[in-house]
Design a protein around this nucleic acid. Sequence first.
DNA 1: CAATATCCATCGTGGGCAGG
DNA 2: CCTGCCCACGATGGATATTG
Length: 289
Amino acid sequence: MSIEEHRAKAMKAIVSTTTWAACWPLWKKEILLRTDGLTNAARIYHLGSQLREIFFKTTTGARTQSAVSGAGMAWECLVCWYLNLVLSGTRGVAMRQSRQLVPTCLLDATTMTYGSYQTNTESDLCVIVYPAGFPYPGAGRGYKAALDVAVAKAFGDIELGIVQCKANWNDNAQIPMLWDMVYRASFDKGTNIKLGRNGYSVKHLKAFTYSFVTTPTQKSAFKSTSMPVKRTNNLSGGNFWGQPTSSGVALSVSEIFVRNFGSAFDSDVVTSIEKAIVVKNGLFAGVGP
DNA sequence: CAATATCCATCGTGGGCAGG
DNA sequence: CCTGCCCACGATGGATATTG
């Protein structure tokens, strides 16, 4: 039917979590305030530079286990929401990784086989950009199976971006750095390390990027020479944060669209958002407040 | 000695899956 | 279909190690 239905399903999965329910009322207030009630395309686009401020509205100050655990989830949800907001009406859709949402062959492509153990960079966001004219299956019973078939058929024309979200930016930046290396590496035929499974590998996609999006939660200033920065600066998809671009350190999340997902757009990004607003018509389905 | 990098313990959360 | 169990994931900040 349309990619907007895939987007609606992806957003429903996020909106129905308890973490989202706890955060959204405060976020919503901030977001509406900063975008003239989600009617100003330029201001919607620039939300990317303000995600950190918005995110901090929900910090409780208490350091309970619940808060610690929930922060990562909350950041991921907020980033996914913003990506889908800006991607509304385009051929790109963002989602958390799950078997219900991500086409099977794309999960296969990102899965590593390490000896007899299969793993991937699960529980992060991924952005799929479908080619123009993609035969998106109708919603309803069996839609996922039909989508799997259609994506498998168009595999070489699909673009995939994995977006590693982390609320803080410290030594754990090793994780995106290493996964990026893994996805870019070639392994000798004799080894027991294999990239992809069931015949699908990210190398066969039209494009594949691995990017990092952090808040960050630390209050200290970041320098271009610090270790976490150096670890993520050269990811295939670049590194981003929820505040304005700082040269040599990180780009604003707003830049991720042109940097990694430009082919999803038929026009410049702000014009695309404008169209999504004007047409309304469910383009913000599941994304709007 | 100062600055930077790394290590560490901790447990709520939600997806996956088995069993009713 | 629904319920409940299992378990990987992720942030924090002080302690410890390294660098210069």
